[in-house]
Design a protein around this nucleic acid. Sequence first.
DNA 1: TTGAAAGCGATACCAT
DNA 2: ATGGTATCGCTTTCAA
Lengths: 328, 328
Amino acid sequence: MPTVHDVAREAGVSIATVSRVFGRPEVVAAVTRQRVRSAAETLGYSPNATAQALQRGRTGHLGLLVHDLANPFFATIVKAAQLEARRHGLALLCADYGDFPTDELALARDMARQVDGLLLYSSRPPANLAELADVGPAVLIDTPADGVPSVLMSTAEGIAQAVDHLAALGHRGLTYVDGAPDTMFSSLDRRRHLEGACRRRGVALTVVGPYLPTFESGVRAADLVVAQEATAVVAFSDQMALGVLRRLGERGVRVGADVSVVGVDDIWIAAQVTPALTTIRMPCTAAGAAAARLLVGRIEGDAEATTVTLPTELIVRSSTGPVPGGTR
Amino acid sequence: MPTVHDVAREAGVSIATVSRVFGRPEVVAAVTRQRVRSAAETLGYSPNATAQALQRGRTGHLGLLVHDLANPFFATIVKAAQLEARRHGLALLCADYGDFPTDELALARDMARQVDGLLLYSSRPPANLAELADVGPAVLIDTPADGVPSVLMSTAEGIAQAVDHLAALGHRGLTYVDGAPDTMFSSLDRRRHLEGACRRRGVALTVVGPYLPTFESGVRAADLVVAQEATAVVAFSDQMALGVLRRLGERGVRVGADVSVVGVDDIWIAAQVTPALTTIRMPCTAAGAAAARLLVGRIEGDAEATTVTLPTELIVRSSTGPVPGGTR
DNA sequence: TTGAAAGCGATACCAT
DNA sequence: ATGGTATCGCTTTCAA
């Protein structure tokens, strides 16, 4: 790989001039600039990113840590963050800690050494987040912590809308199929909002779980739902909701008629299954982009720990319907 | 951030010794080593990755370029590549070119400046691949090119198995729903194998498309399939196959009885839909890992352009069954 | 075993 | 407008 020296020699100028041609071309005389450019061209020169990084004190990289890169929910966030990073001339280092025995914290520390800032989708309890974010400039996704900027997907509206929706359909109670340990913020948050919304609407709330947030868990939970004679179910995630749908179908329960089911996330398949799944849409793309934008701001000096809150909304499809034997 | 100088001063040694303690601790006297370690500890020192990279001539990064990071097919590859990279002490830079107007080549060039090697899942026609891979050490995924190491997912077996399977069920013809322009290797490859397998088994082959490889395309294709009175369908991808399934269901066609449907990929939902989708499983995880491993080898000096070929296999589920009105 | 010093490749200040 | 040079933080000979 040619360096500034090679180009300088080829063009008969100093390395300083070569550097300027690539960094601030306007301060170089047109003829010189042209000479340097063609020298660089013939040599196939392009500036060494590492050397630039060392000199500038910026790697030009953002790091992103999530639980599972292959999970469509996280993958959507990754994609959005990557695109936004690139808009700012930055590249994205990705890693997941799901299948890795090592501590999430160790990974964050390791990554922090190679990037200008970190995007963290943590599964840690809120109390342990400060330590995580302490490794350098960081933005948390979907979980709040004092003094650390974060992007929240507010399930409050979505959940309120879901409960309103079910109540309007005549449901007097619902079963929540939990899908994450209550040490996680998102789990606590959803439960809390659900409790509030149910209380306000006079809807009785039953919680089952927590399960792992998988299709199979949904299948298992469905039998409990039937045993409880619930008329409405809200699941922690679409994957779980799809499991519920499947098992209810097998048991001869008509979803949308006998039992209503609501998911969370709005993954693509939710709209395609039969019956199509009513779900609370999570703004993953917006969240990934917002997080990257926030981090870039942070890196460039915005001291304040802004928190961006993105709303969720209920997408009504055919898995929800009037309570059976209702008065209307 | 403290540097070797700070630690050296604190420990009363030279910067060379500090460097050694982190790089080759065994050549440093035990007491000195201990002193340096505790100095580093109190200062919170850890080596600057950029400086190490500059000095070593290695960034410690691998780059991965795919069409769409949010697509579960690619996401699985990303996850596997990331894990394998980390096993070798490397981090993974990810980018996709799907939603980016700029040329894939430009992106590859840009990325090449910041990594030790590139993992490329290209959508370019085979003829233009050499240019792409020319940006530096590279490994191609799912597409071959002379002189460039690559990891191929061989659809030959899977397709042969699918045709055998359908023929055994009494099907005398099948419709292939194509999902990618025939400039792409994977499209050409699948078509070619399908033609060969059908010829060998005396199965009549009809091709429709190419469509975009989406659920909606599958929906559209399904009506064509019905019009042709096909008894068996092979789709380019599971997403398309799911679209076919859905539309056939809507039209009152019983999948697995009236019409058999086969997909490609084996994404998680394939096993969960009703009827469960018979599909050709693509070894994405193995491919991602193998590609990373190959690239690491390449970077460390293995000159040969090895090609790893991973087999595919047919996973039989309930979307395929005996031809209606068959003799058995 | 340890230290001094020469780079790695680029940037930017200070002269000219 | 251009060139010389110190510097970024680290690794690695070469000497001692």
